[in-house]
Structure formats: structure tokens, C-alpha cells
Design a protein around this nucleic acid. Sequence first.
DNA 1: TCAGTTTGTGAGTAATTGCCCATGAGCGAA
DNA 2: TTCGCTCATGGGCAATTACTCACAAACTGA
Lengths: 317, 317
Amino acid sequence: MAKRTETVGRLDDAARAGWLYYVAGRTQDEIASAMGISRQSAQRLVSLAVAERLIKVRLDHPIAECLELGEAMRSKFGLTHVDIVPSDPGSSSTTIGIAEAGAAEIERWLKKADPIVLAVGTGRTLKAAIDQLPAMECPQHRIMSLTGNIGPDGSAAYYNVIFSMADAVKARHYPMPLPVLVSSSEERDLLHRQSLVQSTLKLGREADVAFVGIGELGVDAPLCLDGFLDPDEMMRLMEEGATGEICGWMYDGDGRLLEGSINERVASVPLPSRETTTVIGLAKGKRKYAALLAALRGHMINGVITDEATARYLLAA
Amino acid sequence: MAKRTETVGRLDDAARAGWLYYVAGRTQDEIASAMGISRQSAQRLVSLAVAERLIKVRLDHPIAECLELGEAMRSKFGLTHVDIVPSDPGSSSTTIGIAEAGAAEIERWLKKADPIVLAVGTGRTLKAAIDQLPAMECPQHRIMSLTGNIGPDGSAAYYNVIFSMADAVKARHYPMPLPVLVSSSEERDLLHRQSLVQSTLKLGREADVAFVGIGELGVDAPLCLDGFLDPDEMMRLMEEGATGEICGWMYDGDGRLLEGSINERVASVPLPSRETTTVIGLAKGKRKYAALLAALRGHMINGVITDEATARYLLAA
DNA sequence: TCAGTTTGTGAGTAATTGCCCATGAGCGAA
DNA sequence: TTCGCTCATGGGCAATTACTCACAAACTGA
């Protein structure tokens, strides 16, 4: 307990130091003497505040180029929502930028006064976005997971998107106590008949907005790395034309769901209708190009958050 | 024209550099080579982005102490809205912190989907807050000025709060084409009978929220510095018990409007009812202590944005 | 209680950033 | 055209910040 109190006190100090540094614009030396600590400690508190995401930075300027690319994307693919962030040529991160932009968009939806149903998929990109969310109280909304959050080994949670979200956002949460892939369509149907799952499935059809990651395929794709699919099966699917995956649902190069056995074993909630729901895909980077392009062509998503370089590729394709 | 295009391009570059620096976390050296400019130019772009307020920093952590003080303020003075920001002991600025917090609160109101009427007073503090607002489009709202924006010399605008706001926020604006103080109550009544002023007065009664500065009195008070009152008159008023001023309305140490001639010459819109409107006062610092305390005691305001040190004083009083 | 581990601290140092200055390009007026 | 003005540029240097290391305090699990 003492430990916990201390930790909170420390974060409090970090927040105070971060405030003095970023908002009040003081130097770390000044902060140190104001707070009665050494310069080094002040520096640590400031960087702790950044590391703990106490300090949020946002850019309030419509970069002309990003707007243009966004407009072009909107008309080419018939999108409802587009957000293009600047590219960072030197970075290999697949989430930087779109995580922040995704969080900002999620926040915008959650700030609405009228109750909404917000659906989330899973994956590294979405997790990174959720991690950027500030603490919020939104008892009026409901948040549901489109995909199961049980790992292939049956144990831990697989990219714990919905639970991370529950930490940050106080609202009713509806997880999916299932794996992404099960062994047969019969097993899936059995699991889906559970009343708990039934209500989540129903909620999925009512979603106002959904945020999903775009999964690329390949032997080093998330589904393989996380052990849901073995490399052999992955290769077979790719030979059958599989190009990408959203919430586990496999689709081909034209964004049509694969008609093989694989999708019958996907235990996720069906993607909400793009007629009634804004389904926003988050993805950037070369490895996602093909999967994202196919998803856009097939209108599996009607919103996208990506970066300049990816947008250029998609427009040229 | 070429100049203007160039300026826009420069801001665009500044935004990009600022993004790379603050969001992507690159060094200015890296930004320089990525953008093909010298390190110094990169530094200039980053600081330009800050100077032009393209970069917004916010602190997302409830500092325990500020929350406690806020709760105590709320119950002691029966307030609807309280926001306490950390104090910066070394700074003499009377706006730092509360300007940012005020802007955030104004933004929250303006983000509402349902149409509201937002009223603003005037003064240095409020101006600093408005300057922190991002560009917004809110055609559903109406924004009105509670005080005249004509200087005592009849010419330029006096702390151009409503016009600065119009620059940032696209909504219908209703200024008050009057001075704060006129020479007699007859003149005021005459001016108030103009139809333009009439509609603004009416709007004032409908305001959902009002943001006002708290004016202290004294020979170096804003009203004197800006030439509305000469020092002699100010001294006389203070002898009569005047303690503070909101939108020009003078009140005594218990927060009751002065019954002398002075308030009959104030051409401002009457303060909206605290029964139906959230009237938020922004002020901090020793010089404002007495005026703020009186305003709170008399329930002239039912919301406050201030800093820790001021809150401590108010609670101890 | 005690060894092992984690966590915070201060010192020193390398890296990064902020600022001043001299220079030169661009532009409008004479 | 030329002068004068403004403003962006890059260099250099001082200030500021980030990182590494060694050590001490607190905590954990026998």
C-alpha cells in the first residue's frame, strides 16, 4: 500500500514537473529548485511524465498536403472518414502517428453526448491507439470488441484492446470471451449460441462506429506470430488468393471474403454494415499496402487513418 | 500573393517539423536532413510551430492536490464549475495556466452539437485564453460579448476578445459596439435602445455559459490603465467600498453591485443569471485575491478557473 | 534477518537545443 | 537601376537536456 501511495505521489510530481516544463515553459533547473529536488530528478520527472503519457501533444494545423491526399482518397474509394498524418521517413514504426490520430478520432466519438455503440477490433496498431487515450468518463456509451480476446493457447488475452480501453474509458464494455479462430464452424456456432456472446453479436449490428486494424498476411503476419495459424496453412491461404484480414476475416485482392473453410472458423463478430456504420481502418507502411488496398477496393472499410506515404501508394494503385 | 503562398508553405513546413519533433520524437538534426534544410532552419521551424500555437500541449493527469482544492472550492462557494491549475511559483504572469485551462473549457462548450449561446467578457486574462483556442467550425453556436469593445478614446477596440475569437472560431458573433463606460445613464439608455444593441442584450439573457475576467481595482487597475477611469475617480470608488469589477460592473467586498452612479454608466450587458447560466470567472494572482473573493462570496460567478495558490488563499479567507 | 532485486539519486559527460550575429536574397520605392 | 528594408540562412557558441554509471535505500522472498 505504501508503495502504491508513493507511486501515485510520484506521478503527481511528474505531472507537476511536466506542467511546469511544457505549459509554463520553465527550465528543468528552475523546476528543480521550485520543487526542492536536484536538476537530474527534475529531468527524470519530466521524462516520466512523457513516458506515462501524461503530456499529450497535438498538432493543430491542417498540413495542406495531407488534406489533399485525404480528399483524393475520399473520392477514389468513397470514404466517409479519412485522416492522413505526415510520414516520418526515418522511422520503422508501424503505429507512430496513426495511433495518435486514431486516439483523437476515438475521443471525438466518445465525447458525444448522445449514447453510441463503439466497436473495436484488435491488433498492435489499435492497441497503440488505445494507449494514447486519456482517461474519460462516458457512461452513456457502450464499447464492444469485434474479435475474441483469448489467445490461441486458451490463456492470456490476445492484444488486449478492449481491456486496455476499459482502463482508460469508463463505459460499459462488452468483450468477446472467444479465440479469434476456432477449430471448426460447428464449434464456432456452439460458442456463438452462448447468451453472453449473443448479446455482443447483437451489439455489433448496432455499432455506430468501428475501429479496426488491417492485418497483412505472410509467414510473419500477426496471425502466425501469435500462433493462430501455422505457416503452412498461411501459405495455403495465400495461394488461394488471401490478401488481408480484418478481425480475422480473410479477404482476397478485391476485398471479397474468402469462401473457403477459413472464414467459417473465424469466431469474430461479423463486420458491421458499411451502410449504417462507419468502419475505420488503421494501417500504414509497406507491409500493409496490399491488404489495405484490397480492403478499400472491396469497401470492407469506409474510413481510413493512414500516413502520407501509404496514401500515395493507394492513390497510385 | 506569392508572399502569402510562401507564408502558408512555411507554416505548413513548421507544422511538419513540429509534428516530427513532438509527435514522432525525432531530433532537429534528423528533421533537418529529412526535410533537406539546415539544422538551424529545422530549429526555427519547430519554434515557429510553437510560437504560432500549432503545437498544443495538454496535461492529462489529475494532480491530486488540485482536485482536492477544487472540491473544497466547489463546496465552500457553491460552484458549478471549478478548475484549479498548478501554480508556477517563479512566474509573475497573471495568465499562464488559466489561459490554457480556460481555452480548454471554452473548447469543450463549443464542441457540443446542440446550439448554445456563449458569452465572453473582456480583459487581458480572457484575451490570453482566447489566443489559445484552436481553429474551429461551429455554425450552430452564437458567441456574444458582454462588454463593449470600443476604447475610451472612441477609436480602437479594447481588448479585442470577441474579434480574436471570431478569427479562431467560425460561428455567429455579436459584439457590443459601445465603450465599457459612458458619461451618463441617459447616454447609456440611448445607446442601449439601438436595435443592434437590443438584440445583443437579449442574447445575453439567453447565454448558456459566460467566461469573464475578474478586474481588480486600484490606480494601476486595467480600467485606469486603459483610460476608462481616472485615478481620482478610482480612489473615490474604492473609498465607497468598491472591491472588484466584472465586465465593468463594480461590486463591494461582499460581491454586491455598487449602488452609486458608477454602475449606471456601465454600458455592458447585465451579467446573465447565475440560476440559468454558468458564469465562469478566470483570475489568479495576489492582485486579484480581494476582487475574486468578493465575487465568489456574492455569487456573482458560479464557476472559477484559477491556480493553486489563489485557491488556497480563497479557502483560508 | 539476510541476500537478491528493484528503484531512486547524484555526478559526470555527451548530445541536443536556443540564441546571436554576419551575410545575402527578395522586394518595393525613389 | 540602386538604395534601403525585411527576412531567411548557416555558423558558432553557450545553455539546456539526456544518458550512463556507480551507489544507496527500499522491497522481496526465503
